[in-house]
Nucleic acid binder design. Structure first.
Ligand SMILES: [Mn+2]
Ligand SMILES: [Mn+2]
Ligand SMILES: [Mn+2]
Ligand SMILES: [Mn+2]
Lengths: 236, 236
DNA sequence: ATTAAAGTTTAGGCAAGACTAAATATGAAT
DNA sequence: ATTCATATTTAGTCTTGCCTAAACTTTAAT
């Protein structure tokens, strides 16, 4: 069995790999797992010896196929538990990350597959992130664009958030934005990239900071008037 | 936060206290947590220093009120998760203990209270064991007798098992016995305490070993003909 | 080409929790 | 009262995972 610590490192590295560059730096990993570069360096050596990643000293790491598979499994567990917490226990989307951070380490394969079935094999977690399947691979994802880069004068729907920490999620709450919220970009201001946003049932155009617009995934709004929740979307 | 190890020790001690004698011995605890007496001795010293138990060297331990409270919480989490696994994920009662052994260490109070509500505030877990409430105390339990000591010629219903390890639970499965099974004790054989058992829809009387009869909790069968599951019983 | 800042690893420690082997206490039997 | 088997604790190590401080690479700037 993998330790909690090892699992957290592997998941952090997967995260950084997916999001970013070729090789993942020791410092970036240390930051992600809230540890020091020294501790992280020691851990990376060990993870390398055990075949979960390739470690080129002073030049960062890259997960092996084997390591990637393990990390995807942890990500799968994390996101499935988040679904359970929101859909069945009534938590808000900004309250579930920390709890899922613990639940993800319960290792029974049988448990997680049954949970998956119980939840109806969801494709997206409460933050719009894709849930890996039992085969350890992402299911194909729908086309999505950052709000900042979306076309103007077209009704869009929020389908996910980028790197959704609880603080950001609560800020969205203040703005009245959640998954399924529809909006139209009227204008992109050249000064700092702020967006003029029009909501369907409001008259006034609102100003949205680029720090928010850069972290919202949107898709073309479906023609149906009711809010479409991601669990019910066809992502093929 | 309590470590997994500390939680397992406290729960083990609670178990031994409830079941048995005044003071709990180091060896008994070591056996329960699958560790050595030496390791256990060290742990007991520490648990004593932290105020969870009183440790009289060479004479065993006793949980303090504070320690009891903590242990009851862990027991609560364990049994609520067992309910979830059986009632909602479709596990059998002999498959859930190990998984709950891990889930019980996820510490969020909010999580466990919402889970309790989601499950409908069950009073008994899938093995017929009483689930402590959010106040950390057992809810009042219905009268129950060991099958070995139950009166003859009276229809009984199985409401729980004593110390139900997975092996014993599977043996019950072979015998066709589960929670809710009804039976009548026809005779108690003086040789070894074996029981002659009559099942409602069977002609032949079956012989039941005392090792089984001593580990089944029974109650007087309710008059209604359908099987009564414990979740629906009124235990006040 | 040197130099300096930034990133990374090594060195040396510490705490938790486990183990084995050895010492010591207890309690029952002589 | 002594002896002896059993239970318990102590001593000495080990592993995992973390830390700080020091040494060392890399890389970018002079
Ligand atoms: Mn985690
Ligand atoms: Mn998520
Ligand atoms: Mn446990
Ligand atoms: Mn149980």
């Amino acid at each position: 069995m993998l330790t909690v610590s090892v699992e957290n490192y592997l998941k952090a590295i997967l995260h950084l790999q997916v999001e970013g560059e070729e090789r993942v730096s020791t410092t970036a990993i240390a930051q992600k797992v809230a540890s020091t570069p020294a501790s992280t360096s020691a851990m990376l050596t060990k993870l390398g010896e055990r075949g979960w990643l390739e470690h080129q000293p002073y030049h960062g790491v890259r997960l092996t196929k084997k390591g990637q598979r393990v990390a995807m499994d942890i990500l799968r567990r994390h996101r499935l538990w988040e679904c359970f917490l929101v859909d069945h226990l009534g938590f808000e989307w900004d309250q579930v990350h920390e709890i899922a951070e613990e639940l993800e380490h319960v290792g029974s394969v049988e448990l997680i597959n049954r949970l998956d079935a119980f939840l109806g094999f969801p494709k997206l977690d409460p933050h719009g992130d894709v849930i890996p399947g039992a085969n350890g691979r992402f299911r194909s994802v729908a086309a999505r664009t950052l709000l900042t880069e979306a076309p103007r004068n077209l009704e869009l729907v929020v389908v996910g958030v980028v790197d959704g920490g609880d603080a950001f999620l609560r800020h969205l709450g203040v703005l009245g934005i959640q998954l399924g919220t529809r909006m139209t970009v009227m204008e992109r201001l050249s000064f700092d990239g702020s967006l003029h946003i029009k909501y369907p049932d409001e008259e006034e155009v609102q100003l949205l900071a680029p720090s928010v617009g850069q972290r919202l995934w949107v898709d073309q709004s479906s023609p149906s008037p009711e809010i479409v929740f991601p669990e019910e979307e066809d992502l093929q």
